[in-house]
Nucleic acid binder design. Structure first.
Length: 588
RNA sequence: GUCUCAGUAGCUCAGUUGGAUAGAGCAACAGCCUUCUAAGCUGUGGGUCGGGGGUUCGAGUCCCUCCUGAGACGCCA
């Protein structure tokens, strides 16, 4: 497949072994170490050139020979290498074709061993606290919050594959001046009956209306600030209204989370830190970091950053104050070694300031804090804004996705068992995958038809490929449930029959074994989109293999090899989808 | 204005430490279901990698500069 990981030249772990093995033949002649040579090696842009290549330009400098001459000479060194089928010089490149049968068998055995492919122990003993989702109380759960939810969940899942303990924290927006605004709006033009009939919609409408009116009457903003101050001071009447808002919001959020399959270890809203902020302010003062400025209290951060506001001139706390308290709590209470904040990129400066303040306070864990930023979800090129009422509700999108998936099942697979459950898995999977496949930092311009596409590079495409593997294995009588080692087809071919490994089989094998490196890289770069893209590559390579190579009607060792490969695909896709938080039905 | 991020096919996007002729998907068009699920496969067309300099054997990738877009920039979160 031309878009496969093979052509993307991923540095894959099984291939790394082969690189080293090949490179070891060149050490004597070049004077370079095998590691240095292996690092130079790459996958040729055009697969017809070979499976691996060594560009000889850098060698030319130390060997003082022309690159084509070096390539020619090195080709001779590979005559005795068992994993090399053919080697030839093309210009300054040495192109190597691997022995397909040997490598395919090796790869299947390696994947089946499952020692490091789908899990490892790099993070054993370490805890990573992840701040994710964090929707705002009294506002609809929008497509914008989906990003934080699915990226955070995927990262948590991936970290766990490396043995990290994760703490998933939903940092709910349940505190702040916005509640002053809603309280003022509710008291001014709200109506209890209307609100209780449709709480979030109505509360959000009040919020939008407040902003419209505050443009004309700025004194409303003062009233809102005063209302929030009353809340902070413990006014029981306002607190009752506030608790009501949390209650109705959480009920609606939980419905969405159930659909998405999102789980948290803790729902800790910003208000949770109310009684922990005085200590932070005191500590800042004791450490001599707090300064008065225009009636407010701030921490100066030098030339490169604006000061961080700690307390408003009326004494009320601010967002940074709560995040400081939260960070200290996470470091102390959860013993977090890494603190990840999956929050939109527009808050970059805010987190830089909070981390800088922690550093000035002398906390070394400040260096373990990371803002995992992501791009905006836009609509029609414009930023979604709750205040302007310009948002897409996630629930609407999910409902539409499920409806469309159900219609397609009705059309293509009318006798499917559990059709409703599968429609949910596919519809929701499409929405989640669409979000995760895009590079984190890129903005997404939301359109319903793109988010709900079921063809091409989509979640359903991957789910479909997975269901196909299950279907074949089921018919062969070897399908096992789950991603366990026991699930693997046990009989691997042990002969190296010529032409057993055709192009489709070979490219599938190469793509498949890349999943190990992708998983590790996705964790290192905190980028789930790598996994999503690689799942597409595997699915694509498998679909080609499926088309070109009959499996059930083949015989003997060829059939065994194809079944083993099919099962390896099944397990790899199942893992990848599980990491991404997407269901993998065995039949769709 | 300052800072940050981005600019690759009509649209949405891939392109690891600089490597060979820049790739997918969607949309369009043309093929493939008596054969393991056609949510699939194959093929065709489609490009000054925003512009211009520079670094070097080699730049979509690194540096500088300009243009464009988005975001942030003290009492919202």
């Amino acid at each position: 497949m031309s878009g496969s990981a093979v052509e993307r030249r991923e540095d894959v772990m099984v291939l790394q072994r082969y690189k080293l093995q090949i490179a070891s033949h060149f050490v004597a002649q070049t004077g370079w170490t095998a590691e240095e040579l292996a690092n130079l090696m790459e996958v040729p842009p055009d697969r017809t050139l070979g499976d691996l290549a060594l560009p000889c330009f850098k060698l030319a400098k130390t060997m003082r020979l022309a690159p084509p001459v070096i390539a020619q000479a090195l080709a001779q060194d590979l005559q005795t290498c068992t994993i090399v089928h053919h080697a030839e010089a093309t210009g300054g490149y040495l192109n190597v074709r691997l022995t397909r049968e040997t490598v395919t068998t090796d790869t299947l055995v390696h994947l089946r061993s499952n020692e490091t492919v789908f899990q490892d122990a790099r993070g054993a003993g370490q805890t990573v606290a992840i701040d994710l989702s964090s929707p705002n109380i009294a506002k609809p759960f929008s497509m914008g919050h989906l990003r934080s939810t699915v990226i955070g969940t995927a990262l948590a899942n991936l970290f766990e594959t490396s043995g990290y303990k994760t703490v998933r924290i939903n940092h709910l927006g349940d505190w702040g001046t916005q509640f002053g605004k809603i309280i003022v709006a509710y008291r001014t033009y709200g109506d209890e009956a209307t609100v209780s009939a449709n709480p979030i919609t109505e509360l959000n409408r009040l919020y939008v209306q407040f902003h419209e009116e505050a443009n004309e009457r700025p004194e409303l903003d003062d009233a809102a600030r005063a209302a929030f101050k009353r809340l902070e001071d413990g006014n029981e009447e306002d607190l009752t209204l506030w608790r009501y808002m949390i209650d109705v919001s959480m009920k609606e959020f939980e419905k969405t989370y159930r659909l998405l399959g999102t789980k948290f270890d803790y729902n800790l809203g910003e208000s949770f830190y109310n009684d922990k902020m005085d200590a932070v302010v005191d500590e800042l003062r004791e450490k001599g970091l707090l300064e008065e400025s225009d009636g407010a209290e701030v921490v100066q951060l030098g030339e490169t950053m604006p000061p961080c506001l700690i307390r408003r001139s009326d004494g009320a706390t601010l967002y940074p104050t709560r995040d400081l308290a939260a960070a200290l709590y996470r470091a102390r209470h959860f013993h977090a070694d890494h603190l990840l904040y999956v929050v939109g990129g527009e808050q970059r400066l805010h987190f830089q300031q909070v981390f800088a303040v922690l550093r000035k306070m002398g906390y070394t864990f400040a260096d373990a804090c990371e803002h995992i930023a992501f791009g905006l979800m836009r609509m029609g090129g414009k930023k979604m804004s709750t205040r302007k009422g310009q948002i897409v509700r996630l629930q609407e999108v999910l409902d539409e996705a499920i409806t469309r998936a159900r219609a397609i099942i009705e059309e293509k697979n009318p006798h499917l068992q559990n059709a409703d459950a599968v429609a949910r898995a596919v519809g929701v999977g499409a929405v989640i995958f669409n979000d995760l496949k895009t590079y984190r930092l890129h903005d997404i311009d939301f359109t319903m038809d793109t988010a709900l596409a079921f063809d091409g590079e989509t979640g359903p495409y991957v789910q479909y490929a997975h269901a196909r593997t299950c279907s074949i294995l089921r018919k062969a009588g070897v399908l096992q449930a789950g991603p366990s080692v026991e699930g693997w087809v046990t009989s691997l071919p042990n002969t190296h029959a010529e032409d057993a490994v055709d192009d489709a089989t070979w490219y599938l094998t190469l793509t498949l074994q890349g999943i190990e490196a992708i998983r590790v890289r996705a964790i290192e770069e905190r980028d789930p989109s790598l996994v999503a893209k690689h799942a597409l590559d595997i699915a694509q390579a498998f679909n080609r293999f499926y088309h070109d190579c009959p499996i059930l009607t083949s015989d003997g060792e060829l059939k065994a090899m194809r079944l083993a490969l099919t099962d390896a695909v099944r397990v790899a896709l199942l893992h990848a989808m599980t990491w991404l938080g997407i269901e993998a039905p065995s039949e769709i």
